[in-house]
Nucleic acid binder design. Structure first.
Lengths: 231, 231
DNA sequence: TCAAAAGTGTTCATTCTACACCCATGA
DNA sequence: TCATGGGTGTAGAATGAACACTTTTGA
């Protein structure tokens, strides 16, 4: 059964996915940005992207682009928005579906090989990007804030074991404002979704900070009983 | 400068927009659903949709589909999500960008002409729809709830002049739970974005309910000063 | 012993929730 | 006059925000 039998004459479009990749490293929120090799705009900064293939879902295309560029698998990804202005890509009409991804830099990418031309940049370091990629990043940041507020996605950016000061630091970066140490601790612990480990992280202080682990199972149980995660 | 010079060999896709159209009438939240005429699935229930043309942005395509189907212009529309599973459309691979729209039924569409085969149905009346249109509606409802919570989009569904009981009724429909009369009134009035008119709506009671109007200008001023709309 | 970060409680202000009676009016 | 929906206030509970000192330990 041919497609054009049903939908004759409709215009076909190039459809791409672009990935806004967040990481958290040395207390700072960072984005993975590449120097573009394909024309047009060779050498310009851009997000990682690629075209959606035949027989490939959008989600799969986004996962593939991430995998090809970073080698990573099983990463948290979520669709951000579909960008469809006619002239958004100066190389021709391309509709782009943007996804954002959250990566544990420390575990997965101790350092990117420099010849890859991919760089972890802080929000302040982000240069001008091609097309509407700058807008995509702005939108992704807003989405990250909104989402992090009511969903436990922050943990996707931290190592499996983390300290409360680390976690607070992360949220301070995401929200771009200071959070009270005691109130933060009270709130997150009151939700009862962190497992306190018998281990300390001594890398940032002599006393050492207790390590915790996010308990997914417990979180699921509690939300099913109506608990609302909020931080 | 030809596109394929830059992007040779990339697959082109059919891209559609589908519209989830919300209305509020007789105290009930409703959706505009059509009986589909084009093959495949002639006669089945579906959302309004259409293909994205060459030289047409996604937003423009969504607005066009709405205009063609309802005659309406300048309607609140917002992108919901881009649906891209390979087999989502059984007639062939079509990527669909879903938009939701909010319509003042009372002002614009007192009644739809029955020969249009478009129908305002309550959430309970919605039949099984083709493809993933049911999922789109579920997603749109969740989005409407989230958005209505912190943005004054409810007013898009009401006539310009409305009473507080009417407004409360709308939010009860959106959230699917009863709201306390006094607390609701207190909250919405405390935000100081409603203009109290010197008019009453006597259609639902002998005493009559005072009419109000949403003051966009005031709302804008207040949000610029940091006020957060929440209901 | 001291510098540096981790950890800990309380108070006050604000917001949320629950709740019941009078009012205006057309039938 | 009465039935119907519109309109109003308060008290107690819960939550949020502000704030300072003690603990641990490696250098």
């Amino acid at each position: 059964m041919s497609l054009t039998a049903f939908y004759p004459g409709a215009t076909r479009h190039l459809v791409a996915v672009d990935c806004i990749i967040f990481g958290f490293d040395k207390g700072q929120l960072k984005l993975l940005i590449v120097k573009r090799s394909p024309a047009p705009y060779h050498g310009a900064w851009s997000l990682m992207g690629g075209f959606v293939d035949d027989g490939e879902s959008l989600d799969a295309a986004a996962a593939r682009v991430l995998k090809v560029n970073t080698g990573l698998d099983s990463i948290y990804m979520d669709q951000l928005h579909c960008y469809g202005d006619v002239d958004r890509d100066t190389g021709g009409r391309v509709i782009s579906v943007a996804y954002y991804a959250l990566i544990r830099i420390s575990e997965h990418l101790p350092q990117l090989s420099p010849d890859y031309d991919a760089h972890w940049l802080t929000l302040q370091e982000i240069p001008d990007l091609i097309f509407d990629h700058g807008k995509m990043i702005t939108d992704a940041l807003m989405r990250l804030r909104d989402k992090a507020h009511f969903h436990p996605i922050g943990f996707e950016l931290l190592p499996e074991k983390f300290s409360l000061p680390q976690l607070r630091n992360l949220y301070e970066e995401i929200y771009q404002r200071p959070l009270d140490k005691r109130n933060f601790r009270k709130k997150i612990l009151s939700m009862d979704v962190l497992e306190k480990l018998d281990e300390k992280d001594k890398s940032t202080s002599k006393k050492g900070a207790n390590l915790y682990r996010f308990d997914k199972k417990k979180y699921k149980e509690l939300t099913e009983r109506g608990m609302v995660f909020e931080i």
